[in-house]
Design a protein around this nucleic acid. Structure first.
Lengths: 194, 194, 194, 194
DNA sequence: GATGAATGAGTATTCATTCAT
DNA sequence: AATGAATGAATACTCATTCAT
């Protein structure tokens, strides 16, 4: 598993991949990605044995990054307890999530493409899901007394993620209404879980 | 005077495309699609000038088909009025929608790929949206007194569609729990809109 | 050898071929030629079994047409005898030839392409040469007392044709100087033969 | 640091192109050219971005080579001055030109095809013309006191080239008479210019 | 005979991956 | 390790020709 040095190059390639995928789709040539990263096309393959490997790595990285951002919003507010506080906290977390995602439209777009690709392995998808599980505890608390209190966590997480993704798309496609869309989505989530 | 164009062939190509895209993604070769359709690769191009044209046609067709199926569930129950009836009706419609989608996993998978492709034109996306217009009216009525009563319809439709898609994914990936997932999603929708 | 009727269509196809070859080169599609001729692509092949056949027919026709035009200039002035008259007559014939060719740039261009094609058979080339032999007698008289009096006729004809072709190209490429070029070429021919 | 581009390969491709064009015309497949050059079809495109690029390069190279050969005959005899000497020199130069061209029938044939192609850019044609500039000066001197003393140089060069080309064709098509044809053409040129 | 759909071999070009330097 | 040339399979699309109507 030991990779050649230069983490710089590795991450340069990965973020180049994000940018290129965002604009050219999954059909993007590895050579294009390499050039965008300022690296020779040969080098790309010393860091990622396969184009699919690169894509999987990018997928996992983006999902992980997103999860971290969400967790970030999470850690800022812990310890509320009353119902009203829970709602406030949820809003805060979801708003953080949404705004973070909307700030990186390229990442969002790349992720959307990668998510439906069949190059992305089940393993990658599993890893991605696990990264998101950090917020499971939070959602657990949110839904504790709500309508979805007995639903399996996977289901809750899947539905929540779907709504968030859709909301981000709306925010990106019409940035002037971003705040309204954000508020609406947070409301929707609240009602869905309660 | 010459051999007329065959609608059979046209639709054979389109459904072949669905099957092939579902398994091979958008990178699927036109030759593969043609062979799957039992047609020469040259013929594919007498029916669709371009691979992108074919994909757009398939996209619109699938969306339209889905819309028709939903509308089908819609027309079955018209005329309810009390709140309880509205809920019942909505459940029915959503359940219909979900089960229909879950019954055609290939169509769903193909649609998921096509939806994020940049080969799909705005015109196609518009047409698709218009096909869904029928359900918009229904949602209008559902949300009339609910929390989202003031939200723009696009937003509502986008969120609803996202939840439906996620639910179908869940149903497909774990068919034994399909009914529970369906019920859960319907509940979620209900709460989200009310 | 009996061809299907409608000489109209046959010649429509041929002149369409001239136009299309002039603009698109020999790589022009038969379908394009057919459409230009206002005929179905299938029909083209009832008149010409092969694309090469069509091209050969066009080649021969153009060469023949040119020869006829030259002969036309020829017949206008027959019977001069003194040396000075011969020169005058030659100028007249060559000028006629040049102006006729320069009036049909598409034909000239198509002919230039066809002449170097390897689709054109030796038979066609022979026929073409024979068509031009009408002026052999005339050239014979021109060169009778000149420097090329002992050269084989083929050689004379080849050189003369080459100069004429080059002159026509010059005239076409710079129409404002057409008359000067014509005069120059006639002079050149006169000197070459005397 | 990587394998350097090989000039060998580049010229192998170009001369393969000459051979293949000579026998198959401009419709020759790049794959055929590559195989003839002993190179993978992919490699052809690292040396020439486009088939048209390759053809332009070949065109310019052949024209340049021809010009060099002519210049070669030119430099062998410099310094003559009397009228008789000029004639002798001109004959020598033209004979050299003709024999060189006749020795490379493939190059000649390829050049004939390329010259009428519309893939050949004006830039290429200009470069080619400039390569022939050397002989222009020589012709300038030849015609100084002759009949074409006032004609534009382009015209002179065009006519001379046309006669030379025709003569070469004659020499190639009937090699046993090559010398006579050569002598005849030289005479013709002499008379045309004087 | 006319039409234009059907066919499938053929084309230029691309691209993931390998390998010489 | 880094580079970028080399490779050749793969791809969308074209086109001469055939054939059903």
């Amino acid at each position: 598993m030991a990779r050649p040095r230069s983490e710089d190059k590795e991450s340069a390639i990965m973020s180049a991949a994000v940018r290129v995928i965002a604009t050219q789709g999954l059909g993007a040539a590895t050579a294009t990605i390499a050039k965008t990263a300022g690296v020779s096309n040969g080098s790309l393959f010393t860091y990622f044995v396969t184009k699919a490997d690169l894509f999987n790595a990018v997928f996992v990285a983006l999902k992980t990054e997103l999860a971290a951002a969400v967790a970030d919003g999470l850690s800022a507010r812990v310890g509320f307890s009353s119902a009203w506080d829970v709602q406030k906290q949820m809003r805060f977390v979801f708003a953080h999530w949404l705004h973070w995602s909307a700030s990186y439209p390229e990442k969002r777009r790349a992720l959307a493409q990668l998510a439906v690709s069949d190059e992305i392995t089940v393993a990658s998808r599993l890893t991605a899901r696990q990264a998101m599980e950090g917020i499971a505890a939070f959602l657990e608390r949110c839904r504790a007394k709500g309508a979805m209190r007995d639903a399996p966590m996977v289901v809750v997480l899947t539905l929540v993620t779907a709504v968030m993704d859709a909301a981000v798309d709306l925010m990106i496609s019409d940035p002037t209404q971003a705040d309204q869309h954000c508020a609406l989505a947070c409301d929707a989530m609240w009602h869905m879980l309660m």
